[in-house]
Design a protein around this nucleic acid. Structure first.
Length: 433
RNA sequence: GCGAGUGUGGUAUAGCGGUUAUUACUCCAACCUUCCAAGUUGGAAACAGGGGUUCGAUUCCCCUCACUCGCACCA
């Protein structure tokens, strides 16, 4: 587990405008979280970096953004509609909740007590809704409980539009919804959350090779998010715990404040999903090799990332408490490319109009260039540095009296707290690197 | 969902059947400050929500909501 407490992270997120409780002013809504200005910046930076890494910089990837509402047949074919609607009973002796069809001989499989169960109740993990004005059986739909199906349902469209060489992948980022029994641990388990998923279509002969490559690519990505190697653990999921269609699954676990817990999954899903669609629709899901080889239904490797879990892991990894000049400080040592604020600009003193004027000029220049730039003239200079440290701003640019003479400013580094002098004209180039 | 616990400004906290509801930090304004949370002055800001008991409830009781811990759940 991490040595940062969850309270520390939650409090920082609230105080500095990263993440707030959903519907907080009305008393909250369990399992929902709202992102503030810095949180949404951090989250987007992570998501964009993922997209850049796995889609834009590759030649074998296709992005999609499918609708959250889908034809209910999708969930019937995938098994979700059945799996999410099992009647459950509770053992009145040991309070275990059990699927009714798992109770044999009217005995509790956990404590062995016979015949003492609550009435069966429906537990729907999917949020149900009705599409259109008439509420009947045919209008039922669900908020998607995973984004993957939006990829599988577009597999054939991608084939028709692009006919990519196999192996190729389809990537998607988007919201998913699960009516969790008990949302827990900050944003870790929420009812509304965001996923970044890839379905990588392969020739079944190559699955082991592709799986290993994904393992490597994922690890590289996690390093670039700033997660130290020792904080991520690959858990080979044993056959008994895997989904029935999966031949191999690795859970990438992270040392969160609450526990070592899942950050993302890498699963070999075989042809389960495409075969289901083929069965349900009668449409041919085969891929025809361009070299005239025998058509086949591709198999799939699925790397599936939880966005909020990544945000949390990045925050936990970046958080540090150290000392500067004998004073304690808390600092987010975020990788620069993920930081919500790229650079903060300050006048050394705010009661000197000439400094303020110059600082405003520099601020406007940088703002136009980078966008995520903050102007800060609160309190004194040391205080501003600490404020920026706490939200992970990698650099602070300070305008002082020398600036007025020679057009140079100081750039102060977040991690080392060291300062260098640089010409204003070089600023943009320097900060970009 | 079950069991246990918690809920006071943005954060962290003190407190009580009748208070002007404590303190610190943060925040805002002013002064000051020539590089790492300095100082002075002023200001904003809270008893989770709803019922009940009571002359009077932030305090006691009930319900709801949220959070924490354990169990279960995580297809």
């Amino acid at each position: 587990m991490s040595d940062v407490s969850l309270e520390t992270i939650v409090s920082l997120c609230k105080r500095r405008g990263f993440i707030y409780q959903g519907s907080e002013i009305y008393g909250g809504l369990a399992g929902t979280w709202d992102y503030g200005p810095l949180g949404v910046a951090l989250k987007r930076n992570i998501m964009n970096f993922w997209w850049q890494t796995f889609v834009d910089s590759r030649e074998d990837m296709y992005g999609v953004d499918a609708a959250i509402l889908m034809n209910q047949k999708v969930w019937q074919a995938s098994g979700h509609a059945a799996g999410f609607n099992d009647p459950m009973v509770e053992c009145l002796n040991c309070h275990s909740r059990l699927r009714q069809d798992h109770v044999k001989d009217n005995k509790c499989p956990v404590c062995g007590t016979a015949g003492k169960f609550s009435e069966p109740r429906q537990f729907n993990m999917m949020f149900k809704t009705n599409v259109g004005p008439v509420e009947d059986e045919n209008s039922i739909s669900y908020l998607r409980p995973e984004t993957a199906q939006g990829i599988f349902t577009n597999y054939k469209n991608i084939l028709d539009s692009f006919y990519p060489d196999i192996p190729f992948g389809i990537a998607q980022q988007g919201k998913a919804f699960r009516n969790e029994i008990s949302p827990r641990d900050f944003v870790f388990r929420a009812r509304e959350f965001e996923q970044m998923e890839i379905e990588y279509f392969i020739n079944p002969e190559d699955w082991e090779k592709a799986f290993e490559q994904w393992r490597k690519d994922i690890n590289k990505f996690l390093r670039e998010l700033g997660l130290p190697e020792g904080s991520v653990h690959e858990l080979e999921v044993p056959a008994a715990d895997r989904a029935h269609y999966s031949k191999r699954t690795i859970d990438f676990e992270f040392d969160y404040p609450h526990a070592r817990d899942e950050l993302l999954g890498l699963a070999y899903r075989t042809d389960f999903d495409l075969a289901n669609i083929q069965k349900a629709t009668g449409k041919n899901m085969e891929y025809r090799p361009k070299d005239g080889g025998k058509p086949f239904v591709p198999h799939v490797i699925e790397p599936s990332f939880g966005v909020e879990r990544a945000v949390m892991a990045v925050l936990v990894s970046a958080y540090a408490e150290d000392e500067v000049g004998g004073e304690k400080r808390s600092v987010l040592k975020l990788p620069a490319h993920l930081a919500p604020v790229k650079v903060a600009v300050s006048p050394l003193l705010k009661n000197k109009p000439e400094l303020v004027k110059k600082a405003q000029e520099v601020y406007k220049t940088l703002k136009a260039e980078f966008g995520n730039v903050m102007y800060d003239d609160n309190g004194n200079i040391g205080k501003r540095y600490r404020r920026q440290d706490e939200i992970g701003t990698p650099h602070c640019a300070t305008i002082d009296f020398q600036t007025l003479e020679d057009e140079t400013i100081t750039i102060r580094n977040r991690d080392s707290t060291q300062q260098v002098r640089a010409a204003i004209s070089d600023l943009v180039t320097k900060l970009r690197s």
